[in-house]
Every structure is written in structure tokens, then in C-alpha cells.
Computed example of a mutant assay.
Amino acid sequence: MTLTIRTLIGTAAVSALALASATGAQADTWKYSLEEAIDEVQGVYATQFKEYVEANSDHTVEIFPYGTLGESDDTTELTQMGALQFSTASPGFMGKVIPELQVFLLPYVLPEDHAVLADFYKTSDTINEMLAAKYDGVGLHLVDMYPEGEVVMTTQEPVTSPADLDGVKFRVMTTPMLVETYRAFGATPTPLPWGEVYGALQTNIIQGQENPMFFVESTKMYEVTEHITYAGHNNFTTAVITNKTFYDGLSEEDQALVGEAADAAYAHIIEYQQGLTQRAEEKILEAKPEMTVTVLTDEQRAPFREAAEQVKQKFVEEVGGDAKAVLEGFQADIEESRERVAGD
């Protein structure tokens, strides 16, 4: 199963990548594409991965920041084709290819505690076995998954309840469960490619979007919105994937190298994220002092949590397959992580 490359098929960039792949799946230069800029969280992770690989082998890693090779759908297909060896692929886009991955988009499922979250991604059998096996079926191999930061809403008007989102055209990634989430929250979900979001906010085509705070700051989304809301409903997740044929063709030594590099990058990015949200918020308020930041109370979050229950039910009913087992597995794995962190 593959996606459709809208802008890159037939271009010199794709031809060059495909040629490099064809000359040897285990080429010394491994190409790694991002959904973000090199100085954002995915870039920090990828740089650490690159440094580990190059310090411990003769291989080199070439990183392609967001926009270099198109949108996320494009780079995922390039990885499936083998033109890229590695790429980041968030569930917001991959949920169209592997529907069960939309569990990461369900509101109020992931733990809010950073230590519990970090433990969960590394130890969850549901992620690292059940969901990892789903990637194999679409020509990919799951290398790693990690959180990028609590998701916040940025809007033109204050948000303290679902009623405040009534009639708001809210940008979402093109995946059904994110559409269902914002519909349940009272908004009018509007799927848009990321490259169109700033202009759409600026021209009032949409009036809201969600992302981790560091991304709101680095992409200057605060310039075209007026209010930031912490509802505690999710943490942005991303995955590192590799072409399955490429990975299966690696020597045992190189497969171990990939795993070790991912472990080093994971540990680094978890530490890097400590205080990242707060630092980004401070930068936003320094650049735009009139920006309001609201942290919803438990009472204010209650109707959002109630709405979230119908989204979880739709996930089970509409995705089908292993959706129920995945959701139940998440709940069990998260509880084990809470117990483990509490016992440390």
C-alpha cells in the first residue's frame, strides 16, 4: 500500500534519490527526511542519530529538513519506495495508511506526566510489538517513536469550553480521528497541508490550529492567532521509520547500530524536552506580549474529556481491526508505566 506523491514524481530530486537507492540498499550514505526544520525537535533527534551512526561506523547520514522533499505524505512514499532510508512520519499522516495509529490522536489517552510518557513509549508492547508489526505490512520498519510536547490550541478568540469552538474552522491533519476530535470539541475541522496553515490563518480561512508550543513559536503561528490554550488533551507523537527491504538487508551489526543510535537519540530528545514548552512560551510572550495563554482547570477540561469518550468509541467502531485491542493495550501499558515511575 502506498501514498501518492503529488509534487515530486518525475522530478530530479526523486530521480536522484531513486538512483542512489538502486545502486545499493546498504549504501554508506543513509538519507533521512524530517517533517520539521533541522533546529526543531525532529531535527535535534535526527542530528543525534546521525552523530551516533557516524561515530560508530563508516556510514554517513544525510538529513533533509521539512520542505526539501515535499510534504509528509511524499516523504513517507519515498521511504516505501526505498529512495529514502529513514524518515519521520507522525501518526497524523500515517493514520491513513495504518488506521490503528490514530490511537495517538485520541484526546485524553496519553499520560500528561513527562516521566510516565517517556517510559511508556520505550516499554509499551502495544507500540513496539503490535503496532510495529503493522508497519511491516506497508513496506516499512518502525525504528522508534517519541513524544514531541504537549499540544496546545492557538485561536483568534479565547477558548475555555467547547462552546467557544462553535463555528471555528480549525485546521487538522488529514486523518479521520483528528477530524472527529475537533468535531466533538464543537469546532468545524478543516484538513489542510501544513504549508498552507499560516496563510489560511492570516486570511481567516481558518481560525485555529493545534501543535506543540515549541512548534507554535518556531513557525510563528502566534503572529496570526491571538490566544493559546492548554487543554491537556494530547502530546504530539512522531515515529522514525525505515524502508523494510533496506532494513532487512542490513547486516546484524548495522541493524544493531540503528537500534543503538535510536536509543541514544531517544534519551537525548527526552532530556532536551525538559522545559522546552516553557521556554517556547516565554519567547512567544516576549515577541508578542498581548498574546493570552490559558491553562484550563480540571473543571474546564471536564466537558472536553466527556466529548473525548465519543471519539474513542468512534475509533473502535470505525477503524475496526485491532483498534479495540490497541486502545486497551495502551491503557494497560500506561498504567504499568505509572507504577514503574512511581516505584523509582
Score class of each variant (00 low, 15 high):
F120D: 03
Y52D: 04
T155G: 14
Q273S: 09
M1P: 14
D164V: 01
G139E: 04
V316P: 04
A287L: 10
V41H: 04
Y108E: 12
V14Y: 10
A22I: 08
A25R: 07
A55N: 07
M153H: 14
G232E: 01
N235C: 06
F93W: 09
V341T: 11
A27F: 00
G24C: 07
D73Q: 13
V61N: 01
D144H: 05
Y121C: 03
D136V: 02
Q202P: 06
L117N: 03
S87V: 03
A13C: 12
D58S: 11
P193C: 06
N211S: 12
H233L: 08
E112N: 14
E77N: 13
M173C: 02
H141M: 04
E40R: 03
F120P: 00
P176Y: 03
T190Q: 10
E306L: 11
T219S: 06
Y182W: 14
E71M: 07
D166T: 07
T155N: 14
M94I: 06
P99M: 09
Y52E: 06
F86H: 02
A16R: 13
D119C: 12
Q273L: 10
P176A: 06
V116P: 02
F214C: 05
N56L: 03
Q156H: 13
L105H: 11
G320M: 06
W194M: 01
A118N: 12
T238H: 02
A262F: 02
M213A: 06
A262G: 02
M153E: 12
S251H: 15
D74S: 13
Y198G: 00
A27Y: 00
D74Q: 13
F120S: 04
T29D: 09
L250P: 07
